[in-house]
């Protein structure tokens, strides 16, 4: 579960956003959409949880996309092709891929919550599920993977500042432009997930949560999320990061 992955490509794909393709035989064979790698960055005490954006099992690669938000991700972004990175993973449960291929499925991603939805969209469309995707970014320069999502289904991009697509949040997209939704999958910042949960309250949905983590394997209780207001909880790293919308209490 602790492994070294060789970086085989590195690319800046949007403002402060880096895509790395990593080579590893076992992780590339077992990863399901929504799982993450817990990455050790040299000189840093705590590992960084970074979601897996894509997997190519035949070429033994996994792709991660991360945003440079602090010293750890900045340092990771300086790693060169050929370097190896030390990871724990794949960690977490991942999105359930139901066999209900007839379901009309909505994917809602915000910012750095977008990456895990790409591998999910790929897997869903492979099994014949029709997906509609809403992607929200801060502004035009933060947008990535738009074309890749378009290849898999109808994709709507919004930006907070209106510099590309409609101005607003992912939850502002009107019903008229969306099909009838049977289920949704979402990943993004907490306020967005709360709004998504409220907007599609009657639709079964799955939310992928993020949180600052310690061990990343379920031992330290750093990333607990309440399941109600009476003391119930789940661990994001171990029980999640994906939860059904109703099983987590987002405050």
């Amino acid at each position: 579960m602790q492994q070294e992955l060789r970086i085989i490509s590195k690319q800046k794909i949007a403002r402060d956003t880096v895509e790395m393709v990593l080579e590893n035989k076992s992780i590339s064979q077992v990863t399901v959409p929504g799982q993450f790698l817990h990455i050790h960055v040299q000189g840093h005490m705590l590992r960084r949880p970074i979601s897996i954006a894509n997997v190519d099992a035949s070429n033994y690669t996994v792709t991660i996309i991360f945003k440079i938000l602090g010293e750890g991700t900045r340092k990771l972004s300086t790693y060169d092709v050929g370097n190896k990175i030390d990871v724990l993973g794949p960690n977490g449960n991942g999105f359930p891929l139901d066999n209900t291929t007839q379901a009309s499925t909505l994917l809602v991603g915000g910012g750095i919550g977008v990456p895990p939805l790409y591998y999910l969209a790929k897997k869903l469309t492979e099994q014949g599920t029709v997906v509609t995707t809403i992607l929200g970014f801060q502004s035009k320069e933060h947008i990535f993977y738009e074309e890749k999502f378009r290849e898999l289904g109808n994709t709507i991009v919004v930006t907070n500042d209106g510099s590309y697509g409609e101005k607003g949040f992912v939850t502002n997209v009107p019903d008229e432009v969306l099909p009838t939704i049977d289920r949704y999958y979402s990943c993004g910042p907490l306020p967005m997930l709360k709004a998504v949960k409220e907007r599609w309250i009657t639709v079964p949905g799955y939310l992928s949560l993020e949180e600052r983590m310690g061990c990343g394997i379920g031992a330290c209780f750093a990333c607990a999320v309440p399941t109600d207001d009476r003391g119930g909880y789940k661990k994001i790293c171990q029980d999640g990061p994906v939860f059904t919308a109703e099983e987590v209490y987002l405050g």
């Binding site: 750093a222 607990a224 909880y233």
Partner: peptide, 9 residues
């Protein structure tokens, strides 16, 4: 005990 709100680390 549930513990404190997050972030916790």
């Amino acid at each position: 005990r549930f513990g404190n709100p997050t972030p916790r680390v």
